[in-house]
Computed example of a mutant assay.
Amino acid sequence: MLTIIYEDEQYVAINKPNGLLVHRTRIAEEKKEFALQLLRDQLGYRVYPVHRLDRGTSGVLLFAKNSAAATPMVQAFEERQVTKTYYAIVRGYTAESETIDNPIRPDKDHQHKEAQDAVTHYTRLATIELPIAVGRYSTARYSLVKIVPETGRMHQIRKHFAHIRHYIIGDKRHGDWRHNKMFLEELDSKALLLHAYEMQFTHPFTGELTHIAAELPENMRRLCLSFDWVNAVTKHEKLTDSPV
């Protein structure tokens, strides 16, 4: 059963787990379960996705309960009126803060399209150096970062951190396989360590500022605890409520 983290008369939001597609796609026809289908069956009525999250990304996923409610929220996302905040664990020590302004080229199926402007802001929250050899280095360094994308291009965050060579751990397509392998074998972590933590927007029907937050998934929370990053994330994560 999906975890519902917000609901009102027009909208419902879930904390999407890693590995779950939002809806059926041409390249994933073999998958039997999708967030759209599961939430529809759980609630007993049709819902409408108003934005997307990559399959590997966990966190806040918002749906409209009817088409009339979907239209203004889709427009709000398109007009950049929704503030989204992510957490990620990435390779290396990042800058303390940085804005990545680098156009995103479409994936190979849409190479005929021009690159689109894409801007991502991030802040480093914590670092760790592990005594584990990866590649030619005897130790491995990682950063916990808080990310606020200004635009919403496909795979934007993953591509932008690959662009600055601070690959997101667990990213099989845009990441570093050596660090992914180490996290899997040494830390029992195979998921993409990218989480859509919160979303803020002005509610189209009430006019109120609406805030939706989704706790970190168990695996990412476990890693943050083991890395002694408890004080680096907000109190809403409730890290101390879960065992190391």
Rank of each mutant, 00 (worst) to 15 (best):
V233Y: 11
L216K: 00
G170I: 02
T3K: 05
L125H: 06
A28F: 08
L36V: 15
L36F: 02
I5T: 02
K159D: 05
V22A: 06
T127G: 03
A196T: 05
A196K: 02
P49M: 02
E237S: 04
I4K: 04
M73K: 01
H203I: 12
V148S: 10
N231S: 13
R52S: 09
G175I: 12
R55P: 06
G59L: 01
D41C: 10
T94Q: 01
A126C: 14
D8I: 11
F34V: 04
I157H: 00
G19P: 11
E198D: 12
R222T: 15
K84E: 05
E9C: 02
G44L: 13
H51I: 10
L187R: 15
C224E: 04
W229D: 05
R165K: 13
H112Q: 12
R40P: 01
L53S: 01
N219H: 07
R55I: 04
M73Q: 13
K235Q: 11
I168G: 05
R80G: 12
L184P: 04
D117W: 07
D117S: 10
A196R: 00
I14Y: 02
V134A: 14
D171Y: 04
S138G: 08
N231A: 11
E185Y: 08
H203F: 01
F183P: 03
A191T: 09
H112Y: 15
L43N: 05
A126G: 05
K84H: 07
A140T: 14
A213Q: 10
V12N: 00
L62K: 00
L130R: 14
T120N: 06
L193A: 01
A214T: 05
M182T: 13
E30Y: 09
R26V: 09
Q10M: 02
L225Q: 09
T151I: 14
N102G: 04
M182F: 13
V90P: 02
R141C: 13
E129L: 10
H211W: 11
V148K: 10
E9N: 13
L2A: 07
E198M: 07
E150W: 15
P149M: 12
L130F: 14
T202R: 10
E150N: 13
V119W: 14
V134N: 04
D117Q: 14
M199Q: 04
T127R: 08
E79C: 08
A68W: 12
R178K: 15
P17D: 06
Y142R: 00
L216D: 00
P17L: 11
H51W: 07
E129T: 15
K16V: 00
Y122Q: 03
V134T: 13
R178C: 05
R136C: 03
K159P: 11
P106R: 15
H121G: 08
S138P: 01
R80W: 14
S189W: 01
N18M: 01
R55V: 10
S138A: 15
D117K: 12
R173D: 06
V119F: 15
T71N: 12
I128M: 08
I27T: 08
I14W: 01
Y86V: 04
H121P: 07
Q81G: 15
S226E: 13
T83K: 09
I168K: 06
G152D: 05
